[in-house]
């Protein structure tokens, strides 16, 4: 049910980054950048949903996620695992299975009536629920999903993602203001290091990506996107 060993967090980060590159979930495109949900213009984009189609790889990632939760949250500190619609749902299911816990999922919008109109599955008052999503950019969706779970009676203090952008200095603080701790397997810095090591992209592309990672708001502003965001 649970993994029998706890890999080192640095190993988890390196391995996760390599896996994301292996399945081509990572896109670096400085000449034709992306516009993210927040309006930030970015030369990088990551599609964690590709991971669900690779059984061996996803099994390893879910073991990593479970080990991270057990180490950083605790063995007996959770009553359920909830996935955020839609990308978080499969990962929540696999993590719940590994931890022997019930599962729910959270809709982006309410459906029907009542305080649990955004929740599918059985949730009891006071349940300590772990929120699962595929990734975090500025933490905005984590806050919304956590609030929906709390409205339905859950106690939500922790969220886990496969990938954390980790490019905004105040993301953790913003989540902390909403009583949320974020756990993750890898960040852009890990992916950039793995991309350099594996020669996955031309050096000039990686240089542009690093420039963005060093000051994402300035890069975005200079490329027609927002130069400030708020969670």
């Amino acid at each position: 049910m649970t993994p029998i060993s706890f890999p080192d967090p640095d190993f988890i980060a390196r391995q996760t980054a390599k896996m994301l590159l292996e399945v081509k979930a990572v896109h670096f495109r400085s000449d034709e950048p992306y516009k993210l949900t927040s309006g930030l213009v970015s030369p990088v984009y990551i599609d964690c949903r590709r991971l669900i189609s690779y059984p061996r790889l996803r099994a390893a990632l879910m073991d990593f996620a479970t080990a991270t939760i057990l180490r950083q949250v605790g063995f007996e500190s959770l009553d359920a695992v909830a996935g955020g619609e839609t990308a978080g749902i499969p990962f929540a299911a696999w993590i719940a299975e590994r931890m022997g816990l019930p599962m729910q999922y959270v809709r982006k919008k309410p459906k029907g009536f009542g305080r649990d109109a955004q929740i599918e599955g059985v949730l009891s008052e006071g349940d300590r629920v772990l929120l699962v999503e595929d990734l975090t950019t500025d933490g905005g969706s984590k806050v919304k999903f956590a609030e929906a779970l709390r409205t339905a009676g859950a106690n939500v203090t922790d969220a886990i993602v496969i990938f954390f952008y980790d490019i905004f200095p105040d993301t953790r603080e913003a989540l902390a203001k909403h009583d949320l701790r974020l756990h993750y397997l890898a960040t852009w810095r890990d992916v950039l290091a793995a991309a350099r090591e594996g020669n996955h992209f031309p050096p000039e592309t990686l240089a542009a990506v690093e420039e963005f990672l060093n000051d994402p708001l300035a890069w975005s502003g200079a490329n027609g996107g927002v130069d400030r965001i708020s969670v």
Partner: peptide, 11 residues
Amino acid sequence: YDDQPLSVEAA
């Protein structure tokens, strides 16, 4: 476009 890649050009 929620959860989908959106190029600056398309935006």
